[in-house]
């Protein structure tokens, strides 16, 4: 059994990107200034504040959100044995987005500081429950269809919120928010969403053995002692927590959950269990890299993170489909 050092290499790449993210921004903050060598005390203080209050929470948020998306994508692809599955499959990201939009435009976000992530999570869980209830007793296809239909419901709800928004900027703002971004976030939001993302990822990490067994199909997996209904419940709960919390802060960031598992799968002999950790690290790395990209690109308008991941992810997706066509029987 070949063992490539996949995890250490990915972890190292992630560490490099994390540090790079701390040094990337609209304005170049030279390390000397941060460490106090320039003699400009106020400048140093400011540089440190920017680093600690802006860039550090941003990098951590990017890391956690990317990890959540990558892991969730890997788990869902393992569950459905379909390489085109991704975190939005169960409709959870649409539900989280709707919850966050309601929080912002009902004014709750102004009264209760952490209303947005909380309502986003509520939306994610509500969607998860709906999908689970709708898909209960049916097979994988029914579950996927249930997720798709519930997602449509949530999107309709978001469109309604847009329509009834109290001020004319709303439509523009919701669509901008939905494009996805981790800019200008703070420790407050990370402190709320972070624990949920960690718990969700922990739930998802433990599904490895079951996903391996599922490679043989549901009947054989059950004969190996896998409790399928419980597995589905666990996966939905983990996804709702991790992806729901992430989406409620960042908006909809697409393609990372689809792409990250694919980038690493061939390195681990396609084993579903062994994909999990690398996909988590890869998702975090890809998101951080994209976020660095949005800050380095010399454009007049700010490029949203979700737009960049879409621009890169969609061609990748197309290439994937073409490859599947070639290798499929």
């Amino acid at each position: 059994m070949r063992t490539r050092p996949v995890v250490p290499v990915l972890a190292a790449a992630l560490a490099v990107l994390f540090v790079a993210s701390l040094f990337t921004g609209r304005v170049w903050l030279p390390p000397r200034e941060i460490l106090g060598g320039t003699g400009d005390a106020a400048g140093t203080e400011l540089a440190r504040l920017i680093l600690v209050e802006l860039r550090l929470p941003r990098a951590l948020l990017g890391l956690l959100a990317g990890a959540s998306l990558g892991l969730c994508g890997a788990v869902l692809q393992g569950l459905t044995r379909n390489p085109l599955a991704e975190p939005g499959l169960l409709g959870i990201s649409s539900g989280a987005a709707l919850g966050a939009v309601i929080a912002i435009y009902s004014g709750l976000a102004l009264e209760v500081p952490l209303a947005t992530p909380l309502l986003g999570l509520a939306g994610a869980f509500l969607t998860a429950l709906l999908t689970l209830a709708l898909g209960r007793g049916g097979g994988m296809l029914v579950l996927i269809l249930a997720g798709s239909s519930v997602s449509g419901l949530m999107l309709a709800g978001t469109a309604l919120a847009l329509n009834l928004a109290p001020n004319p900027y709303a439509a523009y703002e919701i669509s901008q928010w939905l494009l996805g971004s981790i800019a200008d976030k703070s420790w407050d939001q990370l402190a709320l969403a972070g624990p949920f993302m960690v718990i969700g990822c922990a739930l998802l990490m433990g599904t490895g053995r079951a996903l391996d067994a599922l490679a043989l199909g549901e009947l054989q997996a059950r004969s190996l002692g896998i409790d399928l209904p419980r597995l589905r419940l666990r996966i939905i709960a983990g996804t709702a927590l991790a992806v729901g919390a992430a989406t409620s802060i960042t908006g909809a960031i697409g393609f990372i959950g689809l792409v990250a598992p694919h980038l690493v799968r061939h390195l681990v002999d396609y084993e579903p269990r062994r994909v999990l950790v690398p996909a988590t690290l890869c998702g975090a790395a890809v998101l951080l890299a994209a976020d660095i990209g949005t800050r380095l690109l010399p454009l007049d308008q700010e490029l949203k993170l979700g737009v960049l991941t879409g621009l890169v992810g969609a061609p990748f997706f197309i290439a994937l489909v073409l490859r599947l066509k070639r290798t499929a029987p």
Binding site: L46, P166, I174
Partner: peptide, 29 residues
């Protein structure tokens, strides 16, 4: 490239001015 908190802070203004409109109904801004 747009404005963000970093830019604001680094310009070191003495005060921040925020426009309020539409009866201060909530918005993301």
């Amino acid at each position: 490239g747009g404005f963000d908190v970093e830019r604001v802070v680094l310009r070191r203004p003495q005060a921040l001015l925020r426009g309020v409109s539409y009866g201060a109904t909530p918005s993301l801004r």
